[in-house]
């Protein structure tokens, strides 16, 4: 077996335990996306091209609220800002790759692919690294798009009284508690929560963006105070 193949398969093996969590996430995102009136083909394209569930669901909620498209797109990008951190952290391992390979690796950059790969990468074996990375990434993409397709096909058939739209804040809540680790992150969260409530009626549905910016600023301030 070639090295590329065996590295790819190790990536697949390592990502397997992380796959099931993406199934309900994808289904909920699919249901939510067609739930606001987006057609099935577009919903599937969104899942496959964006490949970022939280950002997709946040954008879709705003589409449902008839927010201006600039706010919809900007909110999705703010949700995805964390990928800049992963990009910076993993960049050193992808330095020797061709531009095309860099684009491929970037497309699949996710929390899980990042975490698995950074733990496994060997600086002396860039070729092995990229195949391992793809081994973690492709199954995630396939499961994500597959689960989305299931949600999309259920989508319009889900009765309103099930209130499946409530699964969206619950999903964000589960992600939120994984993101809260130190005191400053709690400060960022609390400030953002207060601002989100206060800014609920802001024009252009800009409340989320304002709250996120304020929360980040509060976190940075709290972090600075803690350092002194």
């Amino acid at each position: 077996m070639s090295e590329a193949r065996s590295e790819f398969l190790s990536g697949v093996r390592d990502v397997l335990p992380a796959l099931p969590a993406n199934v309900p996430f994808g289904i909920i995102a699919g249901v939510a996306t067609v739930g606001v009136g987006i057609d099935a083909g577009q919903a599937l394209a969104f899942a496959g091209l964006l490949f970022a569930g939280a950002a997709q669901v946040a954008a879709v909620e705003l589409v449902g609220d008839r927010a201006p498209i600039a706010v919809v797109v900007l909110t999705a990008l703010v949700v995805n800002l964390r990928y800049v951190m992963y990009s910076a952290s993993i960049a050193t391992h992808f330095e020797s790759l061709s531009a095309r390979w860099k684009a491929v690796t970037a497309f699949f950059l996710l929390d899980v692919t990042y975490a698995l790969s950074i733990a496994r990468f060997d600086a002396d074996r860039p070729d092995a690294n990229r195949w391992y990375y793809l081994g973690t990434a492709l199954p995630l993409w396939v499961v994500w798009v597959g689960a989305s397709a299931v949600g999309i096909s259920f989508g319009s058939g889900v009765p309103d009284h099930w209130q499946l739209d409530f699964a969206i804040p619950l999903l964000f809540m589960a992600l939120l508690f994984s993101a809260l680790d130190d005191a400053a992150s709690y400060v960022a969260s609390a400030a953002s929560g207060v601002l989100a409530v206060a800014g609920f009626g802001l024009p252009f549905n800009a409340g989320i963006l304002v709250a996120a910016a304020g929360g980040i600023a509060a976190g940075v301030l709290a972090d600075g105070v803690a350092d002194e």
């Binding site: 909620e61 800002l81 964390r82 809260l180 992150s185 960022a188 969260s189 989320i208």
Partner: peptide
């Protein structure tokens, strides 16, 4: 580093 905590809270609370 504070993006996830701030953004997710802003999405949940309202």
């Amino acid at each position: 580093q504070f993006v996830p905590a701030a953004v997710l809270t802003a999405l949940v609370v309202p």
